[in-house]
């Protein structure tokens, strides 16, 4: 049982970390582009905004389990397998990055318009405003969003256990639910709860440490 927990835990953390990382690699710039091109943004551009928005909305609307099955051929082609821990990385990423983009967009839009106006008055280019104002000023909010994203991705990775994924969720279903071994199922649930709590605690601490408005 202990080995089982350890294996599941390792896989779950692996999936969560890898997917959260890549979701931010794509979602952060995408969210910033959304914030900049929005109607009230620095460089309003309805074409760009609406196109990205459409992609984001479509991907976010597809239920995750259905997305896994829909993406089977693509996943097999890209990753080489569609089952196990590796097999769910791609669908997890595809459902996570649009969510991250929206989180980042809303964080960036929280930045005081006056501060942006002030930086423009000092001769900042759009790029400089994004890099030197939007991101640093929104950082506490972005980190708080990242905490939500990571716990959500962890939850989805567990859900992927139903469709042949790996990690704690898969163990709960394959060893627990399918074999009527409720002790295993509940143990895995407990471990997931603990991991989520840990992420929340870490996230809150990083927000607190990064935010200079609270001191």
């Amino acid at each position: 049982m202990f080995d089982l927990v350890l294996k599941g835990l390792g896989e779950t953390i692996y999936m969560t970390v890898v997917v959260t990382f890549f979701a931010y690699v794509v979602g952060l710039p995408l969210g910033l582009v959304l914030a900049v091109t929005a109607k009230d943004g620095l460089r309003p551009n309805q074409g760009v905004y609406l196109s990205i928005s459409a992609v984001v909305n479509v991907l976010r609307s597809v239920p995750f389990l259905i997305l896994i099955y829909t993406m089977l051929p693509v996943t097999r082609f890209v990753i080489g397998t569609a089952i196990g821990t590796k097999g769910v990385l791609l669908p997890l990423f595809v459902s996570a990055f649009p969510f991250v983009a929206r989180l980042v967009e809303s964080s960036a839009r929280e930045v005081d318009r006056g501060v942006i106006e002030a930086s423009r008055s000092m001769g900042a280019s759009v790029w400089q405003v994004v890099v030197k104002v939007l991101v640093p000023e929104a950082m506490p909010s972005i980190l708080s969003g990242a905490t939500i994203a990571a716990t959500t991705i962890l939850g989805y990775s567990a859900m992927a256990g139903v469709a042949g994924g790996g990690g704690l969720g898969a163990i709960a279903i394959n060893y627990g639910y399918s074999r009527y071994n409720y002790a295993v199922m509940l143990t895995m649930c407990a471990v997931i709860v603990v991991v989520v709590q840990l992420i929340e605690t870490l996230g809150k601490a990083s927000v607190r440490l990064s935010d200079r408005r609270l001191k």
């Binding site: 005081d112 006056g114 501060v115 002030a118 930086s119 000092m122 001769g123 030197k132 640093p136 506490p140």
Partner: peptide
């Protein structure tokens, strides 16, 4: 952008960068 550096501006709501200290704000 170049010309704007010849024109400083201050505001009613100060509009300082909240995540930068005084020195870093002036350095901005």
């Amino acid at each position: 952008r170049q010309q704007r550096r010849e024109i400083g501006m201050i505001f009613q709501s100060f509009n300082l960068l909240m995540q930068r200290n005084a020195l870093a704000n002036v350095r901005f």
